[in-house]
Design a protein around this nucleic acid. Structure first.
Lengths: 346, 346
DNA sequence: CTGTTAGCGCATTCAA
DNA sequence: TTGAATGCGCTAACAG
């Protein structure tokens, strides 16, 4: 049971308490805990374990961290103006992948949601609680670069997610999914089905990955089809529908709408219905990053499966590697993607 | 710039380094950093700040934590068999609410996703990195109680989310939303519109809150309507649709389906369509916890707005209060909910 | 206003 | 095989 001091404040037991109870030195206890059994006799070890159990002792992270100069945690920093930043399923999948991998090696995940640059500055002044971290940033490239530069000053292993790291900071690693290929595959299917005029509906809030999808779609289409670009207020679903609907009414010759993500694909489905267009007969629709929503529509959305969860795991492995071997160079990982079939393109 | 040792390993600067550069004692630097300006002269403070800037010094959390016996972080522990535990929008909203509140006071959020009791035991052996934590557990009440009892041994401020804490552990706090009232309001509306036979479609994975909703719905209906109960495999959307569809075909006199959450409400929408039932004409449908999805269907789902984000904030406030004043008793907070209108009940 | 001392819990190093 | 000494970075308490 926890020790209580005179004032009634319960204090956690330390190595010293265990050592006293087991009648050994603190080092012996430390050795037992860290499984250095070669250095401890069997019966002594048993006595120590009994004392640990009796006191309900658990090593205190702060002492260990101070001594070893390791925090035994990784960070996930998200810079995004929406305060409900974890609404984004991509972010949550990355976080889940990191958390689950880290749990297997006794590490923790520290999540930081920042709404603007000021919050970042505040964060920078404080100490952190991790040995390395991943960053996901929305906004213009210029601003993203500024964020990366700021965070690089922490001098900690760092992975940029779904973006190109700054060329002038070669130490930074990156992990992305192959959104160029994914968008290309979707466009190819639309072209095969005769699409000549396509709308790419992106979110108003800029994510680098979505820009890459739009660019890759345009490149894949070449001069075989025309691709227009529409920026939608993704956070307001109703508004997105309205914007796509307006565009569809203004462009009755459109053959397809590519949603920058599945939410926008679903918005396009409803916009089509409001315009009296049948899917996929009158209008084909695709989404991107098939998470929960992909099946919510009828017909099901044709989309691209995102390995966001696996990306979270890979990020962790890379960071742990960089922490263990400081000499290791930066990693740049590109995860493959594949199309998820759906009735929305026929 | 970061100091480099002979081996090329970069080492973080410490108070001592700053003190040396500024020609003051470490305590003076500490006082400047902690804004104890009454104890430091203006020009000395300026000199110290200059040194901090020059060395890019940042206080190291581990030293501070060790000295003050505080981790400056809160934990969020989720025990749920699905490894993508953060797929649940309720959990992510709670996490976002916690993270954003904590950012304002310089605390961090540590996320722990556990898939089973073994993972919990592993976690219990290690040291943690937080001063208090919130718990969200799915599964049977018996198993949940076991989890709470295990975690209580950490002897840390603890908040149970969306569940009753164990009666024999009066120290544990709790925060819930008033799901009884929410379910009651939905039932009342259905009854007003003449519903006599209602299906409550719950997820196969048991969440205490969903059980409360089902119980409250039955209680509210009394003998005015019959409420059946169906357990759906929520993780597989297609399977959920199939299960609800089967039930609807077997019970053609059903008037309404209450989804235990919005995902299940959406599944019911599709099941209705497959049965050739129009919504709300032939069948009324409700959801629960209106997050992103609530607007994804047509007609829009009638649901109950969840204050999950606010719950996250309240959890943090409660925990911080308990950490600051150990004498404070447990808190038990019940957050009100309200209905979100939608065309799915007419 | 500034400096000195001491010790938080732990693991590396060295001594027995 | 076990123990003792040392110091990681920081701040409360006290001394000047």
């Amino acid at each position: 049971m926890a020790k209580k001091s005179a004032r009634g404040r319960s204090t956690k037991p330390s190595l010293k308490d265990v050592a006293k109870l087991a009648n050994v030195s603190v080092m012996t206890v430390s050795n037992v805990i860290n499984l250095r059994m070669a250095r401890v006799g069997d019966e002594v070890a048993a006595r120590v374990r009994e004392a640990i159990r009796e006191l309900d002792y658990r090593p205190q992270r702060s002492g260990r961290s101070l001594r070893l100069q390791r925090e035994f945690a990784l960070g996930l920093t998200v810079l995004h103006p929406d305060h409900r930043f974890l609404d984004d399923p991509y972010i949550t999948q990355v976080a889940a992948g990191m958390s689950n991998y880290l749990a297997t090696i006794g590490y923790s995940l520290v999540v930081n949601g920042l709404r603007n640059m000021e919050a970042l500055d505040t964060l920078m002044e404080r100490s952190f609680g991790y040995d390395g971290f991943a960053v996901m940033v929305s906004g213009e490239r210029e601003q993203r670069l500024q964020v990366y530069h700021t965070l690089a000053r922490l001098n900690l292993p760092m992975v940029v997610v779904q973006d190109d790291p700054p060329p002038d900071l070669p130490e930074i690693s990156s992990v992305r999914q192959d959104d160029g290929a994914g968008a290309g595959m979707l466009v190819e299917r639309l072209l095969q089905k005769g699409a000549k005029r396509i709308l790419f509906a992106a979110s108003r809030q800029i994510w680098p990955a979505m820009e890459r999808r739009a660019a890759a779609a345009a490149a894949a289409a070449g001069n075989r089809a025309r691709i227009d670009y529409l920026s939608c207020s993704e956070d307001d679903f109703e508004a997105s529908i309205g914007q796509i609907e307006s565009w569809l009414r203004a462009h009755p010759n459109a053959d397809a709408v590519m949603g920058g993500n599945d939410q926008l694909g679903l918005a396009a489905m409803q916009a089509a219905e409001r315009c009296g267009l049948s899917v996929p007969g009158d209008l084909m629709i695709t989404g991107y990053n098939a998470f929960l929503f992909q099946k919510f529509s009828k017909p099901t959305l044709c989309s691209v499966a995102s390995p966001a969860y696996e990306i979270g795991q890979e990020i962790s492995k890379i960071l742990i590697g960089l922490i263990k071997d400081e000499r290791a160079g930066p990693h740049h990982l590109m995860m493959p993607v594949n199309v998820v079939e759906g009735g929305s393109i026929g």
